[in-house]
């Protein structure tokens, strides 16, 4: 099936996967240590929170909206869950945290969705307000300091590995158990987006708003669902990250929204709506992880990370724009709107 093969090779996800492999090999040539099981596990572990948050904003982006409040949601929910559980004298594991954080995250994000949906405001502007509000809330109302007082059940979480490996450089490491959460979330989101009527609604709404409304979809409802999923997954990411790092941080993930959006966009998701896939998001996150980790293996200071991610984004914009121009001929004169939905 040469036709099938050509279509497969033309897919964004396949190209991206190829690039990830090539970059990994190039880094491996300069530093052998990069091509080890320990590094792969390390990259996967680092990708966990980003993958969860990336999966979360996927439905929002499919609708043609951009959210950045999810990092604030992650910080607030994990910190609130910890404060509540700590005051109750909770000594259990991650379960209690998830039980509190997830619904709370969904509720906060739902508020963003409701406000933008009901008043027809761009989610981006509203979420910027919430971003500032949530971090301000954490620092002022809860705790301006990091909290290291983990309950007993959570102390061992950081080295809870599914597969253990001994690495000459890193020492004992392995595949962290939180990967299971990501897999679960990815499959769940995939099933929803691919096989449910509401999931297809995101694509239809992003493709042609009029068709969606005529078919019986409700924009506000879809936006609320997307934001609730977004908030819940961000909350999960927050809790897992804090448990792994062994402290709860009022400014958790501040600034990480740029990395998440960069990863998701590089993964082939369009912020004008209607395009994006679970595989693409996961690959985008892995790509950004490989780049940022790889830099360390190449001996570059970690302070250069953001610069490199910024460069990647700009290069990506230029390449996709040129590709679109080559494929679409001269007719496409878009880029004339703010890009916050239609």
């Amino acid at each position: 099936m040469p036709n099938f093969a050509r279509r497969l090779l033309g897919r964004h996800e396949v190209i991206l996967f190829g690039i990830v492999i090539v970059i990994s090999i190039v880094i491996g040539v300069f530093n052998r240590a990069f091509l080890s099981l320990a590094t792969i596990f390390e990259i996967l572990r680092g990708a966990i929170p980003f993958a969860l948050m990336g999966l979360g904003i996927l439905p929002v982006l499919l609708l043609g909206e951009v959210d950045i409040s999810f990092v604030g949601v992650a910080a607030t929910t994990s910190l609130v869950a910890h404060t509540l559980l700590h005051d109750m004298g909770y000594a259990g594991g991650i379960g209690g945290y998830i039980l509190i954080a997830l619904p709370l995250g969904a509720a906060i994000a739902l508020m963003v969705g409701l406000i933008s949906g009901v008043f027809r405001l761009p989610v981006f502007a509203v979420s910027l307000g919430f971003w500032l509000m949530l971090y301000g809330f954490n620092l002022f109302f809860i705790s301006p300091e990091m909290r290291f007082d983990l309950p007993e059940g959570l102390v061992g979480f950081y080295n809870h590995f599914l597969i253990k490996v001994q690495d000459p450089i890193v020492g004992e490491t392995g595949l962290h158990v939180a990967v299971v959460y990501v897999l679960f979330a990815a499959v769940a989101i995939w099933v929803v987006l691919r096989h449910t009527v509401i999931g297809r609604g995101f694509y239809i709404m992003g493709g042609n708003r009029e068709v969606a409304v005529r078919t019986g979809y409700n924009l506000v409802k879809l936006l609320c669902v997307a934001m609730a999923v977004n908030g819940a997954l961000a909350a999960l990411a927050g809790v897992l990250q804090c448990a792994y790092k062994r402290f709860f941080d009022p400014i958790l993930f501040r600034g990480a929204e740029l990395y998440v959006i960069a990863a998701v966009v590089i993964g082939g998701t369009s912020i004008t709506g209607g395009r994006g896939s679970v595989i693409g998001v996961l690959l985008g996150v892995i790509f950004v992880q490989v780049i940022t980790r790889g830099l360390i293996y190449l001996g570059v200071e970690p302070t250069w990370q953001q610069f490199v991610v910024g460069c990647m984004l700009v290069i990506f914009f230029i390449l996709t724009s040129l590709r679109a121009r080559l494929l679409g001929g001269l007719s496409g004169r878009s880029g004339l709107t703010r890009g916050e939905g239609k």
Binding site: R200, Y203, I204, G206, R214, T215, G216, Y217, R275
Partner: peptide, 18 residues
């Protein structure tokens, strides 16, 4: 009134499905 980002099959059948 079609969705440019979706397949022919989906454009034809989805509304009825919903």
């Amino acid at each position: 009134a079609l969705c440019p980002n979706l397949s022919v099959a989906e454009n034809i059948a989805i509304a009825r499905w919903v």
